[in-house]
């Protein structure tokens, strides 16, 4: 099937893109890697009049060291994020999660910023970005602003990015030396996660940060478990006991792949496993 007709704009700078967005507003849709957008357009679930392709803006691609943070350009592909040395060294959890996004072909096209801006609660990058306290740099007509991860994810497919704004880069505070693991639970490999847990820990265990995928309308932090783990020793029993609180405050969906109570059970089990693997136990 083919999308409805649209006009295509390919700006070469953020300014151009913003001006196009300002002009077309609601009728426009931003195309980043297109790996979620194109299926939606093909199924005619969305029918924008204008598509603004960010692919020509080279400044949006790339990964750099910015002192206390690693900065990932919004148009950097999952494939490049996964393999980048800076990412592996300082924000290992991001590399681990990027490796689990969809499949090889999708990772070659899909972008880090595009996936986060799409804000699918079953997306693999929201939970690790949230857990690591990422900061989202958003450009608008009046300049750029930075939004903390806690404020970025608003609801199902909804973020703090305004209709006339563009996510340009994501700053992720360095967690150098932290262990990390992304535990994804699926029935078949090409499926969106039924539940996934992003865990990163310092030492074993001084501090733990845990994000949950698909346990509500946005990525969630397992804060009760994080608190219980801080300063605890990384024994299997201790971690599992702390993980018992992982589903607190979650509100997962019920669908063909699992009812809400089962997902909450999974969140507890998978949190324990993710933390233990992150801690190298």
């Amino acid at each position: 099937m083919i999308p409805v007709k649209f006009d295509y704009l390919a700006p070469t700078s953020v300014e151009e893109a913003l001006s196009a967005l300002g002009e077309h507003g609601d009728e426009a849709k931003i195309l980043a890697g297109g790996q979620s957008l194109l299926p939606v357009l093909r199924m005619r679930l969305n029918a924008p009049e204008v598509v603004i392709d960010l692919g020509g803006i080279s400044s949006l691609r790339g990964i750099r060291d910015d002192g206390d943070a690693i900065v990932i350009g919004a148009m950097t592909t999952h494939h490049d994020v996964r393999d980048h040395e800076l990412v592996k060294e300082h924000v290992l959890l991001i590399s681990k999660a990027a490796a689990e996004v969809a499949d090889s072909q999708i990772r070659h096209r899909g972008t880090f910023g595009g996936a986060l801006a799409h804000a699918d609660p079953a997306g693999d990058l929201g939970a690790p970005a949230l857990a690591l306290g990422a900061q989202f740099v958003i450009a608008g007509a009046g300049g750029t602003r930075t939004v903390e991860a806690d404020d970025f994810f608003v609801d199902l497919f909804e973020t703090a990015i305004g209709d006339d704004e563009i996510l340009t880069e994501v700053r992720i505070p360095k967690h150098t030396g932290w262990g990390a693991h992304y535990e994804k639970f699926v029935r078949v490999a090409h499926q969106w996660p039924i539940v996934a847990v992003a865990a990163t820990v310092k030492g074993s265990i001084d501090e733990a940060k845990i994000g949950l995928t698909n346990m509500g309308s946005t990525p969630l932090r397992a804060r009760a478990t994080e608190a219980a783990l801080a300063g605890a020793s990384a024994t299997e029993d201790g971690v599992r006991a702390a993980a018992e609180q992982a589903a607190e405050g979650t509100n997962p969906p019920s669908d063909l792949n699992g009812a809400a109570d089962y997902r909450q059970h999974l969140a507890r089990v998978l949190t324990g496993r993710a933390v233990l693997k992150a801690a190298g136990v």
């Binding site: 195309l31 194109l38 598509v51 392709d53 692919g55 999708i106 070659h108 096209r109």
Partner: peptide, 12 residues
């Protein structure tokens, strides 16, 4: 690199 050509616009 490998891509799914149903998920890329010709203009891209």
């Amino acid at each position: 690199t490998s891509v799914k050509s149903c998920n890329v616009l010709a203009v891209q």
